[in-house]
Design a protein around this nucleic acid. Sequence first.
RNA 1: GGUCCGGUAGCUCAACUGGAUAGAGCAUCAGCCUUCUAAGCUGACGGUUCGGGGUUCGAGUCCCUGCCGGAUCACCA
Length: 595
Amino acid sequence: MATLDEQIKTEIGKAVSAVVGQPVDSVQVQPTNPEFEGSHTLVCFPLTKLTRKSPEETARLIGEELTKGQLFSRYNVVKGFLNLSVTDPVWVSTLQNIARLPQFGQTVPHGREVMIEYSSPNTNKPLHLGHLRNNFLGFSVSEIFRALGYTVHRVQIINDRGIHICKSMAAWQLFGNGETPESSGIKGDHLVGKYYVLFDKQYKKEMADLAARGVPEAEAEKEAPIMKLAIDLLRKWESKDEATLALWKTMNGWVYEGFNKTYRQMGVLFDKLYYESDTYLLGKDEVLKGVQQGVFYKKEDGSVWVDLTQDGLDNKVLLRADGTSVYMTQDIGTAILRFRDFPNIEGQVYTVGNEQEYHFKVLFLILKKLGFAFADKCYHLSYGMVDLPTGKMKSREGTVVDADDLMKEMLDEAENQTRALGKIDEMTDAQAHELFDMVGMGALKFFLLKVDPKKRMLFDPAESIQLQGHTGPFIQYTHARIQALLRKAAELKVSPNTDALDLSVALDSAELQVIALLNSYPVRLQEAGRTYSPAVVAAFAYDLAKEYNQFYQSISILGETDKAKVNLRLCLSLTVGRALKHSMSLLGIRVPDKM
RNA sequence: GGUCCGGUAGCUCAACUGGAUAGAGCAUCAGCCUUCUAAGCUGACGGUUCGGGGUUCGAGUCCCUGCCGGAUCACCA
């Protein structure tokens, strides 16, 4: 059966063709401004060239034609805008169709597959605010694609090797005295991060000493004893020195234990993990093959390059003169490996900050030059930096907002405000804590996801813990309110019955607005998928909650004497509740039944 | 310097990809709980959409130009 939107489009198409006298391929329909009567508006200016009449006259003729049918009851014309009113029975039956689908918004799985990468941290320090935006985005986009019927593989590449972890290892060897997460009570990732900071401190001190002795800076950078130790550890690691590997494994193990706790609190999941230590050599063969194919070229010193000047970019190194890989080499290898692991995926989505836009442009170009068709289906989900009111986050200046700390603060704040409102009086301790978690995380996730991913955003802590207004908790509250209403209805034995919906009830404009909004959900979801933007889903959830609250506040539901109206309003509430729950779940946000 | 983003109310963000009088939240002020959860609702205040040109029935949106902010252009990752 055709959806309301499809029916409307066909009807309007027919009417326009009838008035214009010839088929018109595309007509422009938009939602009517709330200040005018109607729900759908046809923009008639573009048609005047064909009708050779004024916009008003054109609109009037089409309006006359349309109101002959069953879909529209009335029309009005403002300038060249034809505002159309869909009849109440059509709206009620639209609501009925939606209410009959418990999985409204969910597309039936069609088997197409995508891979989505997100998170992908280094293992030398704990996760911070920037990672939160990354993880929430990646997880949410995964959920959106699942809702659109895709099979999604959520992956990350863990940067577990390299000089950064060797720095932490070096500092631990020097200053650690055998300290472990158990002995110190410090979470593993934070403990390793502590030594990374210690490394930096010591390194700076040694640099200063060397400078005082007149050693040039460039030389001092490499000659500082602790740096020499780190470089030595990296070399030993690459030659598979047993003791070094053991320490590396131990310290990475601490980090993973810490990360897993953080991921659990964040509520994100992965289907497969890739480790750089397994994949970092993979790209080399492909690059060498590329040299043979003539896609890349080798310089006299033995380094391998790709010439991208034809594509408006530069020359880029792919293998160092000593034959070792660079970051790009690894990424080529990893990309190819993933398509081998999952031959059916259409493409990969990389959730990585916008400072790496150039890198991914180059990566996709190279994959294409190597002849991989999937290169066209790769997408860099590039997101903007998260700034603080004090400016940019800088680890060296200690202005980084730690992910664990922040989440804890959010939960504490949720608890404070919830207690202050006396909301947990009838709850068990466990229920209360689950609520604090839902509200705190809901506030944080919504705050980070409501902004267009592409845009750089400001994280104001004071604003992020707001639980009123344009926030996650506002939407959660609306959901809880609806559930309370439905519980009350059940007590009164008037639970919503979608089959009993009476198509002849007259709709209030507040009811109509809510139904129209509900009806737009599938389109909004499509848009969210097309633009890889959870912000679209967040906007929908907020709009719906806002609109519902206006309805709820202006119209009595259980106090209504007309039984048909009570049932309609309950069905409407039930359906809104489901849509809120579903859309919020796509953001990784849970909604409570009481709050 | 080259390339790519961005600049919208005091602040944080929208604006269905060219449509009507540019919308929300926060903040400020004024109202609404004896009635389905006030984490709510209603109203007021708040704008030269960075400046200047252009394209057309119509521009925050497209083109040119200037200003401001950011990212990037490594044998780093």
